[in-house]
């Protein structure tokens, strides 16, 4: 059961009895003490403080000054912000579906009684572990540079090279490719899900003369929809927060021509390079809102396509 499944079902679970033992209550709170402290000091406290800051003008060196909805009004007219939203949306809504599609396809191929499964699984999974490191971003910058690996290969076929990262029309694609490259993690989750598709359903369908493709479409895929949903929600949330790769590959400024200016990168630049902390806080809350809305849409839409077996 995943965290999402838990959230979904928590509504219909019955509370088991009332706390009859005060002792146990006390013990529980003791065990939870670090977590409660963390919630208050590290999570909720700063959250509320940042909500407050989002209504102020605050440059770190002087006290914050309340300006009402000033920051949010400024966001409405800030074209770089609108552009960064556009960049982020393209990144999220191109890379996540492609990544998940690839992950599902390979999981299905690997699941069909193939020898060397664990070897292939390792090979495809490794990039997921490396993908968020600075070292890989450094490598990417070279692979897609004017003198980079990609151009050398293109050159072998006699085609003209291209500055993939220094051209605004292709720079974002290199980041999308990098995200797709880390399809191994969702693939492993799909593999786990595929193993739970009851074999007897498939066998029964085979007896009825259903083709492989039909069996996949009619049985496997519907049974897999909860896992697809789970992967979709997580990967979207994750992609909205991407930062490191764009930061390293663009040298911190989201260039060329703001084509890789992720929302989070712009937020960092406003807050920590331009001392614009009130505005950065407002931007952070707006990001939370966006992620919340898309997660809610996902949950709402799941009623129509996710099939629950329980």
């Amino acid at each position: 059961m995943s965290a999402l499944g838990e959230l979904r079902t928590i509504g219909h679970r019955k509370v088991a009895g009332s706390s009859k033992e005060k002792n146990e209550n006390k013990a529980a709170y003791l065990f939870l003490l670090p977590w409660f402290l963390g919630l208050a000091i590290i999570t909720v406290g700063p959250m509320l403080a940042s909500l407050y800051l989002s209504f102020t003008k605050y440059n770190l060196l002087q006290p914050p000054e309340i300006i009402g909805f000033g920051n949010f009004e400024r966001m409405l007219g800030d074209e770089r912000l609108h552009n960064s939203l556009g960049v982020t949306f393209v990144y999220v809504f191109v890379s996540v579906p492609v990544q998940l599609g690839l992950a599902l396809a390979l999981a299905v191929v690997l699941n069909r009684g193939l020898r060397g499964l664990s070897f292939y699984r390792s090979v495809f999974y490794l990039p997921s572990l490396l993908g968020s490191s600075v070292a890989i971003a450094v490598l990417w910058k070279q692979v897609f540079g004017t003198q980079g690996l990609v151009n050398v290969f293109i050159g072998l076929f006699g085609a003209e090279g291209h500055g993939w990262i220094s051209d605004p029309s292709t720079a974002l694609s290199t980041l999308i490719i990098l995200n797709v490259w880390t399809f191994g993690a969702p693939m492993v989750i799909f593999l786990a899900g595929l193993r739970q598709v009851p074999q007897m359903y498939l066998e029964a369908a085979e007896v009825d003369g259903a083709s492989k493709w039909q069996r996949f479409l009619r049985i496997t895929l519907p049974l897999l929809t909860p896992i697809i949903f789970f992967n979709l929600v997580l990967q979207i949330i994750h992609a909205f927060q991407s930062f490191t790769q764009a930061f390293i590959i663009s040298g911190g400024n989201g260039g060329p021509a703001d084509s890789t200016l992720f929302y989070t990168l712009y937020l960092y630049n406003r807050g920590f390079a331009n001392f614009d902390m009130g505005y950065a806080s407002a931007m952070a809350w707006f990001l939370l809102l966006i992620i919340g809305v898309f997660t809610a849409i996902n949950f709402w839409a799941s009623k129509y396509w996710v099939f629950y077996d329980d």
Binding site: A3, S281, I291
Partner: peptide, 18 residues
């Protein structure tokens, strides 16, 4: 539920005050 929700909280919302 609070614990599960914090899994999905973007770090940017808390990073400035933190």
């Amino acid at each position: 539920v609070v614990m599960l929700t914090t899994i999905m909280l973007p770090i940017h919302v808390i990073i400035v005050p933190q």
